[in-house]
Design a protein around this nucleic acid. Structure first.
Lengths: 134, 134
DNA sequence: TATATATATGAGTATATGTTCAGATATGCA
DNA sequence: TGCATATCTGAACATATACTCATATATATA
C-alpha cells in the first residue's frame, strides 16, 4: 500500500461536523432542481417583464411581444416555460390566448426581491443578526 | 406617400390600450435588471445549495466545496457573485472566511418558491382569482 | 372548403454562464 | 523572512439558453 506524503486532498474539509450537518439538512435533489428552475424562470429580463405585466392585467402573445420588443415566437417560447412551471395560465377567446399569473407566488417573490435590492445595502449595515449555529 | 396593402406589421398590437398601460406601469430598466440578477443568482443549483446551507449555519469555502462536490475555486467564484448582490457576507477568522446569509430575504424567497412547487398544482385547480383588469 | 389570424413548434445560432486549471494574494506561524 | 494554508482571480472551455426564422397548428369566418 502506497503512502502519500500529503493528507490533504482536493476536497479538504475543515469542519467535518458542519459538512455532515449540512448534508443531513440538505434538500432533496428533485426539490432543489424544481426550486432552481423556478428562480431561473424569474431570472431573465424578458420573462420578468412578462410576469410584471401580467401581474397588472392579462395580456395576449401579440401584445406582450410588442411590449417587450421581441418576436411573438420568442414570447411564446417563454410563455411555454412559464406555463410548464405553473407560473402563468391562459384562457382562450377565439384565436387569442390571454395569459395571466397562475397564483400569487410570483407577486410575493417579486415584492421580496424588490425589497432586497432597494435596501440601503451597498455599504449599509443593516445587520439583523439571525440565530445561526456558529 | 406609399400605401401598403397590409396594416399588419411584425409588431402587431391587438390591444393598444393594454400595451400602453403596461408601458406606463413598467419597472425602471435598472430596477428590472437588478431584480433579474437577484433571481438569476438563486437560479443555479450550486448557488442555491450554498444559500440553503448558509441558512442553517455559517460555513467556509472549503466546506462548501466539499458539500457541493465542486472546486473551491468554483465556490469562490459563486460566493463573489452572491456577495456582490449582497445575498451573503463573511467574517474572517485567521485565514478562514466564514460565509453567512446577509439578511432574511433569501430565506423568504426560498420559502415562497417552495410553497409554489409543493402546491397540488400539476393538475390541481387552486384558482385563487386575483382582481386583474380584464 | 378556402382564407386569415393568433399562437405554437423545431432548427439553427450567437451569447451567456459555470466549471476547472494555473497562478496570485492574504493571513498565521516557525 | 520563509513556508503553509485558505481564498481569490483570470483564462479557457464546454454547455446552456434566448433569440430569430420558417413552418405547423388551431380557431373563426366567408
Amino acid at each position: 500500500m502506497k503512502h502519500k506524503k500529503k493528507d490533504k486532498c482536493d476536497c479538504r474539509i475543515i469542519h467535518e461536523d458542519k459538512v455532515k450537518e449540512a448534508r443531513q439538512r440538505a434538500l432533496d435533489d428533485l426539490v432543489t432542481e424544481d426550486l432552481c428552475q423556478t428562480f431561473k424562470a424569474l431570472g431573465d429580463i424578458s420573462r420578468l417583464k412578462v410576469l410584471w405585466a401580467l401581474e397588472y392585467q392579462e395580456m395576449c402573445v401579440c401584445d406582450l411581444a410588442a411590449l417587450l420588443g421581441i418576436t411573438e415566437s420568442a414570447v411564446s417560447h417563454q410563455l411555454r416555460l412559464l406555463r410548464t412551471l405553473r407560473l402563468v395560465k391562459n384562457r382562450r377567446e377565439g384565436t387569442i390566448l390571454y395569459y395571466r399569473l397562475a397564483d400569487g407566488h410570483v407577486s410575493q417573490l417579486v415584492r421580496i426581491a424588490l425589497e432586497h435590492i432597494q435596501e440601503p445595502g451597498a455599504g449599509g449595515q443593516e445587520l439583523e443578526e439571525r440565530d445561526l449555529k456558529t
